[in-house]
Nucleic acid binder design. Structure first.
Lengths: 250, 250
DNA sequence: CCAAATTCGTTCAAATTCTTTCAAAAAACT
DNA sequence: AGTTTTTTGAAAGAATTTGAACGAATTTGG
C-alpha cells in the first residue's frame, strides 16, 4: 500500500467519524504502528488533522468554535513575534488599517513605539485595546457581527471607499498556494479586499497553522500582500516564496 | 474511548441539558469517576464549562452576569435594578439608542427578553457586550475617546442626524434642579443631546448618588427626559417630581 | 447543630501511548 | 549490478492516561 493511499484512508475515516484511533487504523491499512504514526505526523504538519493521544481528530472540528482558548495559548509566542514584526513595519505619523482577529491584536502593544499614529479598525475588540494603549483610533460605522465582533455591511464599505491608508494589516483564516487568502464570511472578505485597495501596502498576518487551510471566501491572491508568519517547513517556504513576499519571524 | 471523544460527549450533554451530573456521565462514556473528574477540570480550564458540586453546567449562561470591571461594582444592586427597569420600557421590534457608561451597560442582559431589537450605540464596550448577547447592533462611525471608550466627533454627529430612534437611554455624570443633566466632555454632551433630538422618547439612567452633582457640559433639562433612578429621599423626590418624570426602582 | 452520605482532590501504580533510534527492506538513480 | 536515498518495522525508554484508594470537604436530612 502506498503512502498516499494510507493517508487518504485516514482522512476518509476522519471525515466520517471526526475522531479516529491509531489502533483502528492498523487493520484498515495493514501498516505498522510506526508507519501510521509517521502518517499522522505528516498530515498534522499539513494541518489536515490534529493529533491527539491515541489517534487524531479533524483539524476543523465541527463542534468547536473558532475561538479556542486552548490553541490560542499554544500559538501565543508565535503570535507575539508576528505582532512585533508587523508593528515594526509602521512608521511615525502613518495612517494604518487594522483588521479584526486575535493575531492582529498582538500588534497593538508594539504600536506605542510610534508617534502620531492614526489607526482605523473595524474590530470592536481592537478598538477597546487601542483605547487602553491610548492610541488615536477611528471606527468607521457598521453593523456588528456578533461572532467576531467585527463591523461589516454597506455603511462600512461606503466609508472605507473614502479613506486612504499607508498600510493595512489583515488577518486570515487560511492561506494556500491554490486559493490564496481566504476567510469564512463574504462580508468580511469584502472589507478586507477593500481595505487592501485603499492602502499603499498590505500585510497579512497569520501563524503557520493556517497554511493549507481554505475557507469559503477568497479576499486576495498571495502576491497581493506581504505575508508575515512564523517558521514554515523549508520546502513549503520555498514554494510560497515564488508566489509572495514572506517575512518569517524567529 | 479517547479523551477528546469523552469531552465531546460531555459538551454535547451540556448543550442539551445545560447541566450534567458526573454520575450520569459514567455510563455514557464508560470511563471511571476519576477520569471524568479530570475531564471536567480540563474543560473548565478551557472555559468550556463551569464545574458545580456533583457535575458541571454551561459556561455561558446568558442569564448570568458577565464579568464586570471592579469600579462598576460600587452601586451594583442599584444599577442592576435601574437596568432592569430601563430594559422593561423597551418593546419588541423597536430601534433604541444606548449611550456609553456602566449604568447603561446593566440594561443589556435584560434586553434579550425582547425580539427583533435593533440597538445603536456609541460605546465600544456596550457593543462588545451586545455581541455577547447576540443582539443586533449598529455602530455609527467616530473617533474613539480612549478614557470612556465612546465614539465621538463630527462623523458621529453627521451619522446620528440621519437616524431616528424609538427610545434613547442615556447615562449622566450628574443631575440637579438648577443645572439639569450634565457631563464633563462637551463632545459627549453634544452626542447625548442629538440622540435625544432624534428619539421619540428619552430615559436618563442614574443612581441617586449623582443627584446634585454638576459637571461642565449640560446636555438636557430635567423635563426633557424620564429619569430612572433608585430611591431618593422623600423631600428631594417631591421637588424633582415637579420638574421631571421619575421612575424610582425598588 | 450534628451525623451520615456524597462528592472532591490528591496520590500512586499499572497500562497504554508516544518519541527516538536503528537496521533492514524497498525504491530510485547512476 | 552497485550505490544512494527513502520508507518501513521493531525496540527501548520517556511521557501520558487511567482507575483505584483514601482522607478532606461539602451537601443532605434529621
Amino acid at each position: 500500500m502506498l503512502t498516499e493511499e494510507r493517508q487518504q484512508i485516514i482522512l476518509e475515516q476522519l471525515k466520517i467519524h471526526n475522531i479516529v484511533k491509531l489502533h483502528d487504523l492498523i487493520p484498515l491499512t495493514g501498516a505498522s504502528e510506526s508507519t501510521l504514526r509517521r502518517d499522522l505526523q505528516d498530515l498534522e504538519n499539513c494541518h489536515k488533522l490534529l493529533r491527539i493521544h491515541g489517534g487524531a481528530q479533524n483539524a476543523i472540528s465541527l463542534h468547536e468554535e473558532p475561538a479556542l482558548s486552548q490553541k490560542a495559548t499554544v500559538h501565543l509566542d508565535e503570535k507575539k513575534a508576528i505582532g512585533r514584526t508587523a508593528a515594526g513595519q509602521v512608521r511615525n505619523q502613518e495612517v494604518i488599517f487594522l483588521d479584526s482577529g486575535t493575531t492582529i491584536q498582538f500588534m497593538i502593544p508594539y504600536l506605542i513605539e510610534h508617534k502620531d499614529l492614526l489607526v482605523i479598525t473595524n474590530s470592536v475588540d481592537n478598538a477597546s485595546m487601542l483605547a487602553d494603549y491610548d492610541i488615536e483610533t477611528f471606527l468607521p460605522g457598521g453593523k456588528l457581527k456578533s461572532s467576531t465582533k467585527a463591523l461589516i455591511g454597506s455603511t462600512m464599505i461606503q466609508t472605507l471607499e473614502t479613506y486612504h491608508f499607508d498600510k493595512a494589516f489583515l488577518g486570515t483564516n487560511g492561506f494556500s498556494m491554490d486559493s490564496g487568502y481566504t476567510t469564512p464570511d463574504p462580508e468580511e472578505a469584502a472589507i478586507k479586499t477593500l481595505a487592501m485597495k485603499r492602502s499603499n501596502q498590505t500585510f497579512v498576518l497569520s501563524d503557520s497553522s493556517k497554511y493549507c487551510q481554505v475557507s469559503f471566501s477568497k479576499f486576495a491572491d498571495l502576491q497581493d500582500a506581504t505575508l508575515i508568519t512564523d517558521k514554515l517547513p523549508e520546502k513549503e517556504s520555498g514554494l510560497l516564496n515564488k508566489k509572495t513576499k514572506i517575512m518569517e519571524v524567529n
